[in-house]
């Protein structure tokens, strides 16, 4: 196994883990009780995928790190997630914009992974693609409702799309040696985004600023705070079982 495979699995695992952590913050705070349950479902799916991917990454690395060692004992410079997932939740529109773009990327990614030569990754992709389809469906449903709802919701949804859009470019940085080259997913992503934004009466922002660095461990200021909270208890009891 190559180092690339390890980095690749780690990156996807970190995406899912940090997304789950952010979605979990909504628990007991959603705009409607039914939505509380939906967001928790999506968080659980992301967390489930994260555990499979991190476990596999640990095996590829061969240094004896399991999912918890990878999740709890790395510092922010060692995390490989994209910046998109670590951005704060913002209002419900920002959360839905983040989820929409993330799942519009994860769906074709996992679908392609399901057909890749690495059996473990293929199995994870096959399972996660169904979940991603549901996440995309859910996020798109809300992007449309908020975009084409009231004046206020339209304004908030457009602002959210504008705020989050720059962070999508990082997702598709070419990596020809990876099991799935993210650059090959861009057309699919663009088509999904165009359809949904159009129906939502929203405008796709112009491309310009394209922050990146997450895959190399250079993050926003937000990640360190997120990790401090996530890791505090685990680190306070070195070697303990839970």
């Amino acid at each position: 196994m190559t180092g690339t495979h390890f980095e690749f699995a780690l990156g996807l695992g970190d995406d899912a883990l940090i997304a789950a952590q952010r979605l979990g913050e909504w628990t007991s705070r959603a705009p409607e009780m039914e939505e509380d349950i939906a967001l928790a479902n999506i968080a659980l799916d992301q967390l489930g995928a994260a555990r499979l991917l991190l476990t596999y990454a640990g095996e590829l690395e061969g240094a004896g790190r399991d999912e918890d060692a990878l999740a709890y004992l790395r510092d922010d410079r060692q995390f490989r997630n994209c910046l998109l997932v670590e951005l704060p939740n913002g209002d419900f529109a920002v959360t839905m914009a983040k989820l929409f773009f993330l799942s519009a990327y994860q769906l074709p990614l996992y679908a392609a992974l399901a057909g890749c030569a690495d059996e473990r990754l293929a199995a994870i992709g096959a399972k996660a693609r169904k979940e991603s389809a549901y996440h995309l469906d859910h996020a798109a449903l809300w992007v449309k409702r908020l975009g084409d709802g009231t004046e206020e919701s339209h304004r908030r949804m457009q602002a959210a799309v504008d705020e989050v859009w720059p962070y999508v470019h990082e997702l598709f940085a070419a990596d020809p040696a990876a099991p799935v080259d993210p650059a090959t997913l861009r057309a699919d992503f663009d088509a999904t985004v165009a359809d949904v934004l159009d129906e939502a009466t929203l405008t796709r922002p112009a491309d310009g600023w394209a922050p990146g660095g997450g895959r190399a461990g250079v993050h926003t200021e937000h990640l360190s705070f997120l990790l401090a909270e996530m890791q505090v208890l685990h680190r306070a009891h070195p070697g303990a079982r839970w």
Binding site: Q21, G24, I37, A40, L47, G48, E67, H234, W242
Partner: peptide
């Protein structure tokens, strides 16, 4: 939920709290 000490415990707790909403 945000500070659960293992990923397994985090998943279980999320599911549990979600159940209460249900």
């Amino acid at each position: 939920i945000s500070r659960a000490p293992s990923l397994k415990r985090k998943a279980i707790l999320l599911a549990k709290v979600q159940d209460e909403a249900g």
